[in-house]
């Protein structure tokens, strides 16, 4: 379903480069539920954005359903997002001008090019909010807002649901509700579920836990191809120092260098077509 091959992501900060993902390789089976666990700043969101086609890697390949996202144009990527994945953020998922029902219909329209009011109401019922269809986001609690976001995700009937700390803003009771909902969908519809969290309790509810530290996968459970934590390049390199160090570094670092070089060309898409081994 999802296969990442040697994914790098570097951000340019002034004249320096911050390498956020360093050679991430990961495979997720269809219908699997995977937690990505890691400390703040370890690159979890960056990784999810790349899998969801919201952002592009500096180097490496991202296959979703066999398609390499790296080669897609902006509009092709938009069509990929509309038809294959649903993304749930930690908060602020909803459009504040629209009611809960209209937000769900907005997702329908993105996916199918038309809206179906009855269907949207059914989806809201699924998340227990049929009574709040005409409420606007500010008239809903945090947990209710998050459930609307899940209804929006479901409205697109995606094969893959990607959630970035979906329970981060919730208390433990509503957290359970939201989590239960996502797992229920996964079980009933066979949806692949990828959840980022720094909450170990949330992570344990998934079938597999992938741990990420400083942009590298340190423990991938099951069938992962994560690298160990050895031979890490400095996270923050000046260009000159970076080059000197990298010249004598191992293949891993060479790829970091590629990532750096490619990050300089900020044109999306152009940087990511590194040669596969």
């Amino acid at each position: 379903m999802v296969r990442l091959v040697d994914v790098y992501k570097a951000y340019r900060i002034g004249s320096r480069y911050l390498v956020v993902l360093r050679g991430v390789s990961l495979e997720v089976e269809r219908g699997e539920s995977v937690a990505i666990l890691g400390k703040s700043g370890s690159g979890k969101t960056t990784l999810l954005n790349i899998i969801a086609g919201l952002d592009r890697p500096s180097y490496g390949h991202v296959y979703v359903d066999g398609v390499d996202l790296v080669y897609l144009s902006e509009d092709e990527l938009a069509r990929f997002r509309r038809s294959r994945v649903s993304f749930i953020f930690q908060s602020y998922n909803l459009i504040s001008e629209l009611t809960a029902l209209e937000n769900v219909m907005l997702a329908q329209k993105a996916r199918f090019g038309r809206t179906d009011r009855e269907e949207a109401l059914r989806t809201l019922r699924l998340v227990g909010l049929e009574g709040h269809a005409n409420h606007r986001p500010h008239e809903l609690s945090g947990g209710q807002q998050q459930r609307v976001a899940i209804a929006m995700a479901l409205a697109k009937s995606p094969k893959l649901i990607i959630a970035d700390e979906p329970t981060g803003a919730l208390d433990s009771k509503t957290r359970e509700q939201v989590l239960g909902l996502l797992l229920d969908v996964k079980d009933r519809l066979g949806t692949t579920l990828l959840v980022v969290t720094h909450d170990v309790d949330v992570a344990r509810r998934m079938e597999r836990i992938v741990r990420i530290r400083d942009g590298e996968i340190v423990e991938a459970g099951g069938g992962s191809r994560g690298r160990g934590g050895a031979s890490r390049a400095l996270p923050l390199l000046s260009r000159r120092a970076g080059r000197a160090e990298l010249a004598s570094a191992v293949a891993h670092a060479t790829r970091t260098f590629s990532a750096l070089a490619l990050a300089t060309s900020r044109q999306p898409g152009s940087g990511a077509c590194g040669s596969p081994r």
């Binding site: 919201l54 509009d75 938009a78 069509r79 509309r82 993105a110």
Partner: peptide, 15 residues
Amino acid sequence: VREIGILKALGYTRG
């Protein structure tokens, strides 16, 4: 800006 981001994430194209 935020709303535009949500729309784009939902898959709305540039057009």
